[in-house]
Design a protein around this nucleic acid. Structure first.
Length: 1198
RNA sequence: GGGCGUGUAGCUCAGCUGGUUAGAGCGCAUCCCUGAUAAGGAUGAGGUCCCAGGUUCGAAUCCUGGCACGCCCA
């Protein structure tokens, strides 16, 4: 006996039982132990932060993360799953600040670094319990007891080891990073803070000349400009070369004419005085809204693809380069005509050299200095034109003044420029401003010590006074410009500035090529991430800004000599403790004595680590002091492949790391592209890959005891990654606690269960879709799959028990000998398993779930429905019939057992419920849990593709028959004499003829005929199969279509095609022979027939009703009413009744003749024609005739 | 401001290596079943595949531009 399923099955309740079962039997641990020594499938857990409550988005991540490890485990692999927590960084600090009601860095320091850090470490675990509860309830199997946490000492030391390795490899350096800087407060602001403080303000908009440095025009050219004759010129070519070299002509000009003389003549004769204007002195016209940054000018930027005009200003007798599209606007501003001499592209202007407004400031360094380029050759290190694609023509001149210290994009431009040079520090960073926002000693003396913005006016005045070498003022135009600009949200009068701060960087850009190579080997879902968002990010790689001027994070393990400024990195805590003359350990000891509950891990954190100083190896008597920065918490997360094991310090960590690298599979949401995904790739490539000379880092070779230099596990560091979309609220906007526009996970678990949520997330859309998280969508997904499957399961449960089916008895025949329906469902089961495995092997949960859904639909709506009679009929003793019954039970049993395993990774709870009921309760020594079973393997012997095709045809024809009935308004209850089926394709006709009974029963007809010549029922349409014709006939395809449409007699054409295997038609004077594959025959029922057409053919209904059929229809109708009445009376289905029927004599007469059927179908022991005796009667209508019906217990009536 | 993605039925989403009847579920309408039963099933209506150009014999699918939304970076 199978345990009877409850009358009211509750998924959430059943799931809680399953949870208890898993716990009691330690199933997760056993699923791992069982695979000991097996091939590994490596999973990395991207650490979430536990200082906020988990929401549905986290459920999505964990749902996807759970599926593939479960599946791979069932496929025989060992899939260890170590949990992890991200515990450092700004989010934690912000949370703590909120808690104690403070805001700024100053306030934190006032509050005290030590108590602040204590609060941080407490805050880290604030919602751990909720996270663990969600994880467990969702059925996400991961080892939470052995979780890594980024603040643990062993983790921190691993990160230190990595950083020291990079430091020693010269990959960690101090540089600059541009931040929004509150100068008065001396601190950088986060983007969120900056966003709060935008206001509209007026700033000066300055158009200033940068005079080009160029050689004097040759005398001959001047002579020509003064009216000389081209015929007198001896060397036209050199004159042209000069004009081209000084960008006075577009590069293409030489090609326009045959000889240099002709070219020159063309220029001279263009207009009177044209050459004279052309060779006038020239400036770049540059635009800025921050005059104070002009002091630190380094470059002028153009967009290489924009067009720039050289215009002549007759009033000042000089030329200017401006963007062509802005000439008119500038001309309007200065209220005079500007003659466009010619136009070039921005690319043509690159590397032109100019004199900046304040050349004296940096003259020594920049004036003439050049440096070697990586690709050979040299270039000036400043004061020249560079390319930048952020230059626009929205305003200004199309040429932008660049002071990289004061603009993020400008600084990035500098970094890219720097990469072109051999020496990393060939180009300096010019910065005439001190951190407090005043000009420093690099600025002209008059400005030093003054707040920069206050100097704008004086600088503008000075620009009027300063002149070009030919004596015109540098300032070309000045106006006010209204735009939005950020101010400090805490000190509203203080404008923020973008300002380059010293910062530590990792030289990732050196490894760009290796990142790209590693990425090329990875599998991304969806695919576009690979070359799109992620690939783009890699191609535009800039060095990783590692350090943060904050408090709660992995301390940057670099100590500086206070005398010499030399530095060294420290790779572990022990290494630090062993340093000569180490002092400061007492600070931690005292803190610990005062608060014994402080975790040991804190001793590697600020402020305790800052207290540790030691003797400098670089200068006698000097001390080594740690730099104050902590590191970006993304670096922590990206270090997890080795840091989760405490590699290489912790015992056994070297082996663990090697076993578990690289990952086979990871998955997180799209926002992790530049976070965790990049972190993993960058850190492992830098650390475990070869450097430029192809060598592995020495500490890595040591730790791994390797002699060779081959990279570790390629591709690094993960093979496949599913990038998830974001879940949105019910209303399509971002989920918001405040708006309450989504259901909490707990509510979903309690109402529908974890399986329902999981199935919804797997089956409703591809996982990268940004989808609305809607309660009814979860309910629908549950109904469509889980409830439907439950019904089949429950159906089996009821009847198997009634008939005493016992799978151990092996009463069924071998599958190959069972009925066609059995073989069909077993075939489809195996096909489904083959498909699902294929999808899951490729990490495609959505099509896999769809396939399972389709299978359950076929099982419920065709197999069980068509098999009902086999289950219902009583055990008869008639051998063949009983055998068929046992076959059916065995088939359904096998299907359900296999299915429970196939769905186990998706809906682990319900799969377990099925397994317990169907297998474990029944068989002695059966596997305890479905999750300890092997994933089903498709059995090729069971797969019958032709049968599947044929059964689909039957289902399709049945559906067409129902359509025809609906169109004819004849309900299925009314039996009909026959249907005729005209197939579009006769391939399966023989087989179908053998299954006419099935169709007949499904359509409630007495007879099914297959008609091949049915011209009187249908007309034919011969259509081209474009997919086959297109590639062969190309542009003739539409003509063929036309010719086919114009066929006089499509029916004949069809016959020809069937008989000859080809159809010959005339197309544009040519003869074209089409094969059956190249055309498609469509059938249309002719008018006057009750018929329906589909792709497979036409089903024609015979609608004539003989008296017998009519009567049978009336009886079925009455039976329907009686059954409804039975239900209204809540009668148990086996209850016997007495039936009273009071109606017109004609109908009573008919019913009388069918009394036996009537009585049998309604379980009536007595049928009385006449007024009801006791019970109240119900008025119904049978085909328009009134009937009074009543039921009574047979005894009462007796 | 830049990059990437998305836009398909009333709703939520598939499809999109180009092929002429564009799919599913829900909802809706009509109906069936009443021995899986506070379930189950059938049938139908419903679509300018965001807009405008282009490539092609042929575009929801490829290209360009625009609009809207989202994400990331500013």
């Amino acid at each position: 006996m199978f345990a009877r399923l409850p009358d009211q099955f509750s998924f959430p309740e059943a799931e809680r039982e399953v949870l208890a079962f898993w716990k009691e039997h330690d199933v997760f641990a056993r699923s791992l132990a069982q695979r000991k020594g097996a091939e590994r499938f490596v999973f990395y857990e991207g650490p979430p932060t536990a200082n906020g409550l988990p929401h549905p988005g986290h459920c999505l991540t964990r749902t996807i993360k759970d599926l593939f490890p479960r599946y791979q485990t069932m496929c025989g692999r060992l899939v260890e799953r170590k949990a992890g927590w991200d515990t450092h960084g700004l989010p934690v600090e912000v949370e703590v600040c909120k808690q104690i009601g403070i805001h700024s860095k100053e306030e934190i320091e006032e509050y005290g670094l030590e108590p602040f850090v204590h609060k941080c470490v407490e805050s880290v675990w604030r919602y751990t319990r909720e996270w663990e509860e969600m994880t467990n309830r969702l059925g996400f199997w991961i080892n939470l007891d052995d979780a890594y946490a980024t603040y643990h000492q062993s983790y921190v030391e691993s990160v230190w080891w990595g950083l020291k390795t990079l430091f020693d490899r010269g990959l960690l350096y101090q540089g600059h990073k541009v931040v929004w800087w509150w100068a008065q407060g001396g601190t950088a602001l986060s983007s969120g803070e900056v966003g709060e403080g935008y206001r509209d303000v007026d700033d000066p908009s300055v158009f200033v000349k940068f005079p080009l440095i160029e050689s004097e025009p040759p005398a001959a050219l001047r002579k020509l400009a003064d009216g000389g004759l081209v015929s007198d010129v001896t060397d036209a070519d050199s004159l042209l070369t000069h004009l081209l070299g000084t960008r006075r002509l577009p590069p293409s000009v030489r090609e326009s004419f045959d000889t240099p003389e002709q070219t020159l003549r063309h220029i001279v004769e263009k207009s009177p005085g044209f050459l004279a204007r052309l060779i006038a002195p020239t400036s770049l016209l540059v635009w800025t809204t921050t005059p104070w940054t002009l002091v630190s000018n380094h470059f002028a930027a153009v967009h290489p693809e924009l067009r720039y005009a050289l215009v002549h200003d007759a009033e000042q007798g000089e030329n200017l380069y401006v963007a062509e599209d802005l000439v008119a606007a500038i001309s309007k501003k200065v209220k005079r005509e500007l003659e466009v001499l010619f136009v070039v592209s921005g690319a043509d202007l690159l590397n032109l050299r100019y004199l900046p407004p304040y050349p004296e400031v940096y003259h020594e360094d920049l004036g003439h200095e050049q440096a070697e380029l990586r690709g050979g050759g040299v270039n000036a290190i400043g004061w020249r034109v560079v390319a930048a694609d952020f230059v626009t023509i929205d305003s200004g001149t199309g040429l932008v003044h660049e002071a990289p210290a004061f603009g993020e994009v400008d600084f990035e431009m500098l970094q890219q420029e720097r990469q072109r040079f051999k020496e990393d520090d060939a180009i300096p960073l010019l910065c005439a401003v001190a951190p407090n926002g005043t000009f420093n000693d690099e600025a002209p003396e008059v400005y030093r010590g003054r707040w920069i913005k206050d100097c704008d006016k004086d600088i503008n005045r000075e620009l009027k006074e300063r002149t070009t070498p030919w004596g015109t003022p540098l300032l070309y135009h000045l106006e006010q410009y209204r735009h939005s600009y950020p101010f400090c949200p805490r000190a509203e009068e203080d404008a923020l500035i973008q300002y380059a701060r010293k910062s530590w960087f990792v030289r990732t850009s050196r490894f760009k090529q290796r990142f790209i190579e590693n990425n090329a080997a990875m599998t991304w879902l969806p695919e576009h991430i690979k070359e799109g968002r992620f690939g783009d990010f890699l191609r535009n790689n800039v060095d990783w800004a590692l350090s943060r001027e904050r408090y709660w994070g992995t301390p940057l393990p670099i100590w500086v000599c206070q005398e010499s400024g030399q530095m060294e990195a420290v790779g572990s805590f022990d290494e630090l403790l062993a340093k000569p003359g180490l002092t400061g350990t007492e600070v931690w000891e005292q803190a610990r004595a005062a608060r014994p509950d402080l975790p040991d891990d804190l001793r590697v954190h600020r402020p305790y680590i800052d207290a540790l100083t030691y003797d400098s190896p670089f200068a006698d008597g000097a001390r080594m002091v740690r730099v104050r920065e902590v590191i970006d918490c993304w670096w922590d997360a990206g270090s997890m492949p080795f840091a989760q094991w405490g590699f290489p310090h912790a015992e056994g960590s070297v082996q663990r790391f090697q076993e578990m690298f690289p990952a086979s599979f990871i998955s997180e949401a799209i926002d992790q592209t530049r976070g965790w995904f990049y972190g993993l790739l960058a850190i492992s490539t830098l650390l475990f890959g070869p450097d430029e000379s192809g060598r592995l880092a020495e500490p890595v070779r040591q730790a791994l005891q390797r002699d060779g230099d081959e990279a570790l596990g390629f591709p690094q560091p993960f093979e496949a990654c599913i990038v998830l979309g974001h879940l949105m609220g019910e209303d399509g906007t971002k989920m918001s606690k405040r708006l309450k526009n989504y259901r909490e996970p707990g509510y979903v678990f309690d109402t529908y269960g974890a399986d329902a949520l999981r199935w919804y997330l797997y089956s409703a859309q591809t996982p990268w879709t940004s989808v609305r998280f809607q309660e009814n969508a979860i309910r629908d997904a549950q109904r469509e799959f889980l409830v439907r499957l439950y019904n089949v399961f429950s159906f089996f449960n009821i009847y198997a028990n009634i008939d005493g089916f016992d799978p151990r008895q092996k009463q069924a025949r071998p599958a190959a000998e069972r009925s066609e329906l059995d073989r069909w469902i077993l075939s489809d089961l195996n096909l489904a398993i083959r498909d699902v495995r294929g999808h899951l092997d490729r990490f495609e949960n959505f099509p896999a779930a769809q396939r399972l859904n389709d299978f359950v639909d076929a099982l419920s709506n065709w197999y069980v429905r068509r098999s009902r009679d086999r289950f219902w009929c009583a055990v008869s003793g008639e051998a063949a019939r009983d055998q068929d019954k046992w076959d059916a039970y065995e088939t359904l049993y096998e299907v359900l057992v296999t299915l429970s395993r196939a769905i186990a990774p998706f809906t682990p709870f319900f799969a377990e419920t099925m397994h317990q009921n169907l297998v474990r309760d029944i068989e002695e020594g059966a596997t305890d849990s479905v999750h300890l079973c092997a994933y089903p393997t498709p059995d090729a012997a069971c797969i019958d593709v032709q049968l599947a095709e044929e059964m689909n045809l039957v289902r399709d024809l049945a559906s067409l028959g129902r359509t025809a009935r609906t169109l004819a308004k004849i309900r299925v209850r009314q039996p009909l004499e026959r249907v005729e089926i005209i197939l579009a394709n006769h391939q399966h006709e023989d087989w179908l003829s053998g299954h006419a009974a099935l169709i007949a029963e499904e359509l409630n007809v007495k007879q099914v005929d297959f008609t091949s010549d049915a011209d009187h029922y249908v007309h034919y349409e011969v259509k081209p199969n474009f997919k086959a014709i297109g590639p062969v006939y190309g542009r003739k395809a539409p003509q063929i279509a036309k010719a086919l449409q114009a066929l006089d007699n499509p029916a004949d054409a069809r016959r020809t095609l069937v008989a000859d295997g080809k159809l010959t038609i005339e197309v544009a004077g040519e003869t074209v022979a089409l094969t059956p594959e190249q055309v498609e025959i469509r059938l249309q029922p002719r008018e006057g027939w009750s018929a329906a057409q589909g792709r497979s053919g036409v089903v024609v209904l015979s609608t004539e009703l003989s008296t017998g059929l009519q009567e049978e229809g009336l009886v079925r109708e009455l039976i329907h009413h009686v059954q409804t009445l039975r239900k209204e009376h809540n009668l148990p289905y086996e209850a016997r009744i007495a039936l009273f029927v009071e109606t017109a004599p004609e109908l009573a007469d008919v019913l009388g003749r069918w009394q036996e059927t009537l009585a049998a179908e309604t379980l009536a022991e007595r049928v009385v024609f006449g007024p009801p005796e006791a019970a109240e009667a119900k008025e119904v209508s049978v085909e328009g005739t009134a009937v009074r019906l009543a039921l009574a217990a047979p005894a009462v009536a007796g």
